[in-house]
Write a protein that binds this DNA or RNA. Structure first.
Lengths: 219, 219
DNA sequence: CGACGCTTTGACAAACTTCAATCCCCGTGG
DNA sequence: CCACGGGGATTGAAGTTTGTCAAAGCGTCG
């Protein structure tokens, strides 16, 4: 097999990850429940388990000694998380709301799926992580507060693909993801509303009124 | 092979990557020269080549439409870069100074190394990328200007492991890596010098006077 | 020596944070 | 059913950090 073929296959599989992982992981492992804000795993813990969101939303965080917090990402239904190639969690993971999580021993999955399928699965997951992280890098390094918030809403809406988008997280989580404070996030949201770009039905639900304007503001 | 074993092996191989890749890549591909600031590959280009620094330093960058720039990372001698699992470069790469780069067709390396070795090589490279990116995330999202600069100098010194560290990049590159401006970088450097934490012999060479203070400032 | 590019410094402006007060939504209990 | 209470969200005012603009310094290379 050539590298081109293998890359194509990796790319193809990315689109299928949900289906592929659910096929393979189906019926394996344990289904666990986590209450809101409960820790699923901690930073620097050994990572011999693989997780997949069944329902709810998960966040991964890294905390500095003085309490400053950076959220690495949010994980929604059917998404895998906690796949750590180095066997050690680089972030901790917590339930954003009450969650049901499928937990599978990596070794068990490996045994059942075989080298190839297991490799592709973890490979695709790692890849998506890297993609996320690199987009996040540009956002944190070079975007203004308004652009960060616009990017965030846009990203959420494309991931959810519904008319009215529900925000699963509170302002503090948004702020810690975007490298801002809750107050700044709040101000930017009101600003976006005043500009008739988005409209909030409540603090946890919004609708995009002018998508092209939002895209422009997100850069 | 169990997952635990494969993770152990992946971890073990990370430490050996230089040697492993040089063994496998030795004598393969083409050695190319790039002048300072010359582009090695562009963002969104197809990625069917793998690169390794022979001499010089490389930076990867992403640019916004209005010219704002974020540097993803710097690559030194013997480090691989440009390994893109999705077959498309997420950043562009440029020579920071005159560089000699080993360029290998991914398909050729795959054919010679075999599935296993090739997979481990790209796997390790992707892993290191992810590690870098996630540390970078915390830096950009939650650290102050002073902490960013301190972290940067510390990172550089540990990677180089010499008494006097040479900065291969100018202030603009540091700034674009740290999400700051050159003026702020410059001010933080003066501040670190005034505090007797580091000492600059010239603009491109420094020495750490008080490492524990630097560590503390980097958080 | 002089010109050019990069760095440093200063003064000021803008962006973002902090602190504090108020508001709003929602659930609870009278 | 309505008053009450609490947590999160919003808003305002003031403060801090960082960015911008401009000038001066420094080093290097013709």
């Amino acid at each position: 097999m050539t590298q081109t073929q293998s890359l194509d296959e990796a790319t193809r599989l990315r689109g299928e990850t949900k289906a592929a992982s659910s096929d393979i992981m189906m019926g394996m492992g344990v289904r666990m429940s986590f209450a809101k804000d409960e820790e699923i795993y901690g930073q620097d813990e050994d990572a011999d388990l693989i997780y997949r969101v069944i329902s709810g939303v998960v966040r991964t965080t890294r905390i500095m000694s003085d309490g400053r917090r950076q959220i690495g990402g949010f994980y929604y239904s059917d998404e895998m998380f906690g796949v750590e190639p180095d066997g050690r969690h680089r972030f901790s993971a917590e339930a954003l709301c009450d969650c049901s999580i499928l937990v599978v021993k990596a070794s068990a999955l490996h045994a059942v799926a075989g080298d190839g399928a297991f490799g592709r699965l973890t490979w695709a997951a790692t890849n998506r992580e890297l993609d996320r992280a690199q987009d996040h890098l540009l956002l944190l390094g070079r975007k203004t507060a308004a652009e960060r918030v616009a990017s965030f809403l846009l990203d959420l809406s494309t991931r959810r693909a519904t008319e009215a988008v529900t925000l699963p997280m509170g302002r503090q989580d948004m702020a810690d993801y975007l490298g801002l404070t809750i107050e700044t996030v709040s101000r930017m949201l009101t600003q976006l509303q005043s500009a008739m770009v988005v409209e909030f039905a409540s603090t946890r639900s919004f609708r995009i009124c002018n998508r092209s304007a939002l895209v422009r503001m997100a850069q």
